[in-house]
């Protein structure tokens, strides 16, 4: 504030430099989303109406929300638990080179989402996939038809492929925040390692863990390409339903698509807000 009262003119002209970018964001992001929001509250004649929201309270749409929330929740929690364990194992590796290599692997693989990833899982776990065959020939286990890569259990495996490395990348900086001296002091005061983790380690990691879980949840909730390539229309997820209203599938009402999009934005918004709060708490410990 002080700066605008001191040099009002210069500041105003400096703001002018940001205008093109703001206009771009308005034109291609903010205004379309706001208009979508307004549109979701109007009926076909343009009058205010909640009919679109009534439409999405029918079983098929409720089920797609439930499926999306379940899939995102399961992969976020499994990703967080295993990401924490594997992240800790990587963090404690004696060889810095190996540590770097594993971090680089996580960097690359977390970006391998979408169609190529989905196809890679069909190659290994499809009905005649490599891993499917290996299980059958060497372990005598028939994966099909109990398991199918084209079903929800398959989707969980495919989603974990990009969730796990993301969690590892998120949690490793948090381990760096756990000072050696804390463990030493706790140990000198007679704490065993369980007590150390229960009273010191985990409480310090908690904000990072929460940040990780919500980010993973949002990451899975917004995903589309992987699920679409694997399951196509057999899988009812929110993103797939919204896409149907765009591609003009007969059964799907555009109004319902707008309402679903808004509910998704709300869910994503809550995730991002929790992430921001948890992340700023986590930063207090990070060096």
């Amino acid at each position: 504030m002080s700066f605008s009262s001191r040099r009002p003119r210069q500041n105003l002209s400096a703001w002018a430099g940001v205008v093109p970018f703001l206009v771009f964001c308005l034109v291609f992001e903010i205004v379309p989303v706001v208009l979508l929001l307004l549109g979701s509250f109007t009926d076909k004649a343009g009058a205010f109406s909640l009919s679109n929201y009534q439409k999405i309270s029918t079983p098929i749409y409720v089920r797609s929300f439930w499926n999306s929330i379940q899939l995102s929740g399961i992969t976020a929690i499994l990703g967080a638990i295993f990401g924490l364990l594997i992240g800790y194992a990587i963090f404690n590796l004696p060889s810095p080179r190996l540590r770097e290599a594993l971090l680089a692997l996580s960097d690359v693989t977390t970006n391998f989402a979408g169609a190529p990833l989905a196809f890679a899982f069909i190659v290994i776990l499809g009905s005649s996939g490599v891993v499917t065959l290996a299980f059958e020939q060497y372990l005598g286990l028939k994966l099909y038809p109990t398991f199918s890569i084209y079903s929800y259990s398959g989707l969980i495996l495919a989603y974990l492929y990009f969730q796990l490395p993301l969690m590892i990348l998120l949690i490793i900086p948090a381990f760096a925040g756990l000072r050696r001296e804390w463990w030493e002091s706790a140990h000198n005061l007679g704490a065993n390692s369980w007590q150390y983790w229960r009273r010191i380690g985990l409480p310090i990691l908690t904000p990072s863990l929460i940040a990780g879980v919500v980010l993973l949840f949002a990451n899975a909730f917004g995903a589309y390409a992987t699920a679409w390539t694997l399951g196509g229309s057999n899988i009812t997820l929110v993103t797939i339903q919204i896409a149907f209203t765009v591609t003009g599938e007969v059964l799907h009402d555009p109004g319902a698509g707008d309402a679903m999009a808004m509910v998704s934005l709300l869910i994503m918004g809550v995730c991002i807000a929790i992430y921001q709060v948890a992340n700023s708490r986590a930063r207090r410990w990070a060096k």
């Binding site: 291609f28 992001e29 379309p32 989303v33 208009l35 979508l36 949002a218 909730f221 917004g222 995903a223 589309y224 993103t239 919204i242 896409a243 209203t245 765009v246 698509g257 707008d258 999009a261 998704s264 934005l265 994503m268 918004g269 995730c271 991002i272």
Partner: peptide, 12 residues
């Protein structure tokens, strides 16, 4: 990051 790609596409 808060706007899923399908929602951005739909809005545009």
């Amino acid at each position: 990051f808060g706007i899923p790609a399908v929602v951005l596409a739909l809005a545009l």
